[in-house]
Design a protein around this nucleic acid. Sequence first.
DNA 1: CAATAAATTGAACGCTGTTCAATTATTAGT
DNA 2: ACTAATAATTGAACAGCGTTCAATTTATTG
Lengths: 199, 199
Amino acid sequence: MARRSDHTRDELRGLVINTSIDIIQTDGFQALTARKIAGIIGYSPGTIYNLFPSMDALCLIINGMTIDALNETLNDPACNKVGASPADNMKAMARQYLDFAAQNKERWMMLFAYKLPEGEDVPVWFQEKVAALFAPLERILTPLYKNDAKACKLAARTLWASVHGICFVEQTGKMPIVIGSSSGEAMTSTLIDNFVAGI
Amino acid sequence: MARRSDHTRDELRGLVINTSIDIIQTDGFQALTARKIAGIIGYSPGTIYNLFPSMDALCLIINGMTIDALNETLNDPACNKVGASPADNMKAMARQYLDFAAQNKERWMMLFAYKLPEGEDVPVWFQEKVAALFAPLERILTPLYKNDAKACKLAARTLWASVHGICFVEQTGKMPIVIGSSSGEAMTSTLIDNFVAGI
DNA sequence: CAATAAATTGAACGCTGTTCAATTATTAGT
DNA sequence: ACTAATAATTGAACAGCGTTCAATTTATTG
């Protein structure tokens, strides 16, 4: 029996979360089970339920952390250069997104493949994390929509969703590769070039 | 015991598939279980496995049918008018997509949320169905890329993925509604207008 | 040192996909 | 018509899942 003084409650929570992310990244989020986590960290399944109300809640927390990590890359200086044109910053930001998804594929897939059970709805703190994702792109677009904040918001959400769609299609590999090796980047470039030119 | 002459093998397969679609659309694809299907059609769980190699295979077939149905709406005359401008046809096509997703939400969600287990990869017949989805949009775009078939393909895939992303974001409701009631259509319009203007 | 509180456990419940020997229904051959 | 072969159907069984909870162990407090 694991002694309760081995870890504080928060340490244990962190241990569970980190172990979960490892499992997800290695074997996919479908492989994440309470018994597996417990086995790895040397506790019993019941302990997971002392730390988290349910596996769903744990998944939601992990998804929140994934969004935080993604958000961080979108705020990276590499795609927020003061001297660069909006189009160049946007392309860099799209690249950041594509790279993040590629490097954290399973974690990122889980973000969209995972569905809360019937009845349960997404908590506010999670929705806020999602909403925060649009800010960086909106910031870049602002100079292009000087006098129309509404149009700026619409454009930011349109572009963000579009890049997400391109990323999704690329990651799931459901698109025949006719474009070349880096089709994701080719598509985001085409998207951004045409969109900006059309403003 | 259900008599084997109640239905032919193909009838039974169709019965399983239709029942599955009903369950998915009513309670979500997570609610689809072999025992539930069997109970509804009056057979035992084992019979499902006489008709389909696994639940995964059944899901794949259903996903294929969903793609077929989606493909059909994209070939609808409503978004392939001979007199209309490419932009108008594209907007109509995007609308068809958005409407299809809205009216077949669970079925459509399953298309993306469902993931084949470790090792198994998507069969060719399924990949071909997915590839066929791009043809209608490519057809519309052709007149805009008279002398560059390659650029046309890239644009078609870019736009398709973008519209999908917009649809996904709208359906999953993970985007704060700041645009208005029909944000999906507002976004696809913005996307297409800007994109076409930028060509 | 005793009493209280908290953490940990592991068996149990009902669910899942899946397998398979046994049973039943149908067809083919004589 | 009767038998033999074939095919369909069943339902128990297995391993795994999320989850619950009484019992046990550990730590803290009075």
